[in-house]
Amino acid sequence: MSASCVAEGAARGHRSADVRAATPNGVSSSSTGMVSMTAQLELGHNDAVKYVLLLCDDERMSPSMEEIAVDPAHRAYAAELERRGASVGGARLRPVAQATTVRVRDGETLISDGPFAETKDFIGGIDIIECADLDDAIAIAARHPYASLGCVEVRPVWE
Protein backbone atom coordinates (compact mmCIF):
# COMPACT_ATOMS: atom_id res chain seq x y z
CA MET A 1 0.00 0.00 0.00
CA SER A 2 1.22 3.50 -0.73
CA ALA A 3 2.08 5.78 2.14
CA SER A 4 -0.01 8.58 0.69
CA CYS A 5 -3.72 8.11 0.36
CA VAL A 6 -5.55 9.72 -2.52
CA ALA A 7 -8.97 11.27 -1.95
CA GLU A 8 -11.86 10.36 -4.23
CA GLY A 9 -15.35 11.84 -4.49
CA ALA A 10 -18.26 9.86 -3.10
CA ALA A 11 -21.14 12.27 -2.81
CA ARG A 12 -23.79 9.64 -3.39
CA GLY A 13 -23.98 8.31 0.18
CA HIS A 14 -22.07 6.23 2.68
CA ARG A 15 -21.87 2.70 4.00
CA SER A 16 -22.05 3.71 7.63
CA ALA A 17 -23.20 0.94 9.94
CA ASP A 18 -26.70 1.28 11.30
CA VAL A 19 -26.03 -0.92 14.32
CA ARG A 20 -26.46 1.43 17.29
CA ALA A 21 -25.80 0.89 20.97
CA ALA A 22 -26.16 3.05 24.05
CA THR A 23 -22.93 3.93 25.83
CA PRO A 24 -22.71 4.18 29.64
CA ASN A 25 -23.21 7.96 29.45
CA GLY A 26 -26.34 7.55 27.30
CA VAL A 27 -24.71 8.77 24.09
CA SER A 28 -25.74 6.81 21.01
CA SER A 29 -22.89 5.34 19.00
CA SER A 30 -22.67 2.91 16.10
CA SER A 31 -20.68 -0.30 15.90
CA THR A 32 -17.97 1.67 14.09
CA GLY A 33 -17.55 3.96 17.08
CA MET A 34 -19.20 7.05 15.63
CA VAL A 35 -20.83 9.39 18.14
CA SER A 36 -23.06 12.28 17.11
CA MET A 37 -21.57 15.77 17.04
CA THR A 38 -24.39 17.00 19.31
CA ALA A 39 -23.45 14.39 21.89
CA GLN A 40 -19.81 15.46 21.73
CA LEU A 41 -20.76 19.09 22.30
CA GLU A 42 -22.79 18.01 25.32
CA LEU A 43 -19.74 16.15 26.63
CA GLY A 44 -17.84 19.46 26.63
CA HIS A 45 -14.79 18.92 24.38
CA ASN A 46 -13.99 22.65 24.19
CA ASP A 47 -10.17 22.64 24.18
CA ALA A 48 -9.72 19.64 21.91
CA VAL A 49 -8.37 19.82 18.37
CA LYS A 50 -10.40 18.22 15.57
CA TYR A 51 -8.77 15.86 13.09
CA VAL A 52 -10.15 13.94 10.15
CA LEU A 53 -8.84 10.42 9.72
CA LEU A 54 -8.96 9.43 6.05
CA LEU A 55 -9.36 5.66 6.12
CA CYS A 56 -7.65 4.31 3.02
CA ASP A 57 -7.92 0.76 1.84
CA ASP A 58 -7.72 -1.49 -1.17
CA GLU A 59 -11.36 -1.96 -2.20
CA ARG A 60 -10.58 -5.38 -3.62
CA MET A 61 -10.08 -6.56 -0.03
CA SER A 62 -12.60 -4.34 1.75
CA PRO A 63 -14.80 -6.08 4.34
CA SER A 64 -18.59 -5.97 4.23
CA MET A 65 -20.59 -3.96 6.77
CA GLU A 66 -21.60 -7.22 8.43
CA GLU A 67 -17.95 -8.30 8.75
CA ILE A 68 -16.99 -4.93 10.24
CA ALA A 69 -19.85 -5.10 12.77
CA VAL A 70 -18.51 -8.37 14.25
CA ASP A 71 -14.78 -7.86 13.67
CA PRO A 72 -12.87 -7.80 16.99
CA ALA A 73 -10.38 -5.20 15.69
CA HIS A 74 -13.14 -2.79 14.62
CA ARG A 75 -14.99 -3.35 17.90
CA ALA A 76 -11.80 -2.66 19.88
CA TYR A 77 -11.24 0.55 17.90
CA ALA A 78 -14.83 1.67 18.58
CA ALA A 79 -14.38 0.92 22.28
CA GLU A 80 -11.14 2.93 22.35
CA LEU A 81 -12.84 5.94 20.72
CA GLU A 82 -15.65 5.67 23.26
CA ARG A 83 -13.22 5.35 26.17
CA ARG A 84 -11.39 8.50 25.04
CA GLY A 85 -14.61 10.35 24.19
CA ALA A 86 -12.85 11.27 20.95
CA SER A 87 -15.38 10.52 18.23
CA VAL A 88 -17.22 13.42 16.62
CA GLY A 89 -18.55 11.50 13.63
CA GLY A 90 -17.65 9.60 10.54
CA ALA A 91 -18.91 7.57 7.64
CA ARG A 92 -17.93 4.67 5.47
CA LEU A 93 -17.96 5.56 1.78
CA ARG A 94 -19.45 3.56 -1.04
CA PRO A 95 -17.09 2.03 -3.63
CA VAL A 96 -15.22 4.30 -6.03
CA ALA A 97 -17.20 2.82 -8.90
CA GLN A 98 -20.11 4.91 -7.56
CA ALA A 99 -18.05 8.11 -7.34
CA THR A 100 -18.56 11.13 -9.56
CA THR A 101 -15.74 13.62 -10.09
CA VAL A 102 -16.64 17.25 -10.80
CA ARG A 103 -14.24 19.82 -12.23
CA VAL A 104 -14.92 23.33 -13.48
CA ARG A 105 -12.55 24.58 -16.20
CA ASP A 106 -13.01 27.88 -17.99
CA GLY A 107 -16.58 28.07 -16.65
CA GLU A 108 -17.50 24.62 -17.98
CA THR A 109 -18.53 21.88 -15.53
CA LEU A 110 -16.84 18.59 -16.40
CA ILE A 111 -18.27 15.44 -14.85
CA SER A 112 -16.72 11.99 -14.96
CA ASP A 113 -17.68 8.69 -13.39
CA GLY A 114 -15.33 7.08 -10.94
CA PRO A 115 -12.40 8.37 -8.93
CA PHE A 116 -10.14 11.19 -10.01
CA ALA A 117 -6.94 9.13 -9.78
CA GLU A 118 -5.82 5.65 -10.70
CA THR A 119 -4.47 4.05 -7.54
CA LYS A 120 -5.18 0.93 -5.52
CA ASP A 121 -5.63 2.85 -2.23
CA PHE A 122 -8.88 4.76 -1.93
CA ILE A 123 -10.59 6.56 0.90
CA GLY A 124 -13.03 4.02 2.24
CA GLY A 125 -14.32 6.25 5.00
CA ILE A 126 -13.60 9.03 7.44
CA ASP A 127 -13.57 9.44 11.19
CA ILE A 128 -13.72 12.88 12.73
CA ILE A 129 -12.10 12.95 16.14
CA GLU A 130 -11.33 15.47 18.87
CA CYS A 131 -8.25 15.03 20.98
CA ALA A 132 -5.54 16.99 22.76
CA ASP A 133 -2.95 17.12 19.98
CA LEU A 134 -1.41 15.44 16.94
CA ASP A 135 0.26 12.80 19.11
CA ASP A 136 -3.16 11.72 20.43
CA ALA A 137 -4.59 11.73 16.89
CA ILE A 138 -1.73 9.54 15.68
CA ALA A 139 -2.24 7.14 18.59
CA ILE A 140 -5.93 6.85 17.72
CA ALA A 141 -5.19 6.43 14.00
CA ALA A 142 -2.69 3.66 14.76
CA ARG A 143 -5.46 1.70 16.53
CA HIS A 144 -7.77 1.75 13.49
CA PRO A 145 -7.81 -1.62 11.68
CA TYR A 146 -7.19 0.11 8.33
CA ALA A 147 -3.77 1.24 9.60
CA SER A 148 -2.74 -2.42 9.27
CA LEU A 149 -4.56 -3.05 5.99
CA GLY A 150 -4.07 0.21 4.09
CA CYS A 151 -3.29 3.53 5.71
CA VAL A 152 -4.88 6.22 7.84
CA GLU A 153 -4.08 9.80 6.89
CA VAL A 154 -4.45 12.28 9.76
CA ARG A 155 -5.40 15.87 8.92
CA PRO A 156 -6.18 18.75 11.27
CA VAL A 157 -9.46 20.57 10.64
CA TRP A 158 -9.47 24.33 9.91
CA GLU A 159 -11.61 26.04 12.52
Rank of each mutant, 00 (worst) to 15 (best):
A7S: 03
D58A: 05
V152A: 04
A76M: 09
A22W: 08
D47W: 09
T119I: 04
S2M: 07
L134F: 10
S28C: 02
D57F: 02
A117Q: 07
S62A: 12
A78H: 13
E82H: 10
R60M: 04
S112C: 00
S36P: 02
A11V: 11
G26Y: 08
R84K: 13
Y77E: 04
G124T: 15
G9N: 07
V19W: 02
L41H: 10
L149H: 08
L93Y: 12
S30K: 03
I128M: 13
L41T: 06
A21W: 05
A91C: 12
R105I: 15
M37F: 15
M61Y: 11
L110P: 10
I126A: 02
G114F: 11
F116A: 04
A137M: 13
E118K: 03
M61W: 10
S31L: 10
A73C: 06
C151Y: 02
N25E: 04
D127L: 15
M65I: 15
S31F: 00
T23G: 00
M61V: 14
A69S: 08
L81H: 06
L134C: 00
N46W: 11
R94W: 11
E66V: 15
E8K: 05
L81R: 07
L54H: 10
S148P: 02
F116N: 01
I140W: 12
A147H: 11
Y146C: 08
E67R: 06
C56H: 13
T32K: 02
A3I: 10
E80L: 12
G44I: 05
D57N: 13
A117P: 01
S16G: 14
D106S: 14
Q98H: 13
P115S: 04
R94I: 15
D121A: 01
I129A: 01
F116C: 04
G107Q: 03
F116Q: 04
I128A: 08
V157R: 05
Y146H: 11
I68P: 07
S64W: 10
D18R: 12
T101E: 12
S148V: 10
S112G: 10
M37K: 03
A132K: 15
T101H: 04
A17K: 06
M61P: 00
V19Q: 12
M61L: 14
P72H: 12
T23F: 06
V49W: 05
V88E: 07
E108D: 08
G9D: 06
S31Y: 08
G44D: 06
H45L: 10
Q98G: 05
L43S: 14
T109S: 01
S64L: 10
A22M: 09
I68R: 15
D113Y: 03
E66R: 13
A97N: 08
L53M: 08
L134M: 13
L149W: 12
M61N: 14
A137T: 11
M1D: 09
C151W: 03
V6S: 02
S112K: 03
A10C: 06
V88N: 01
D135R: 10
M65N: 14
P145T: 07
W158H: 06
A79C: 00
E59R: 06
S29I: 11
W158C: 00
S62H: 15
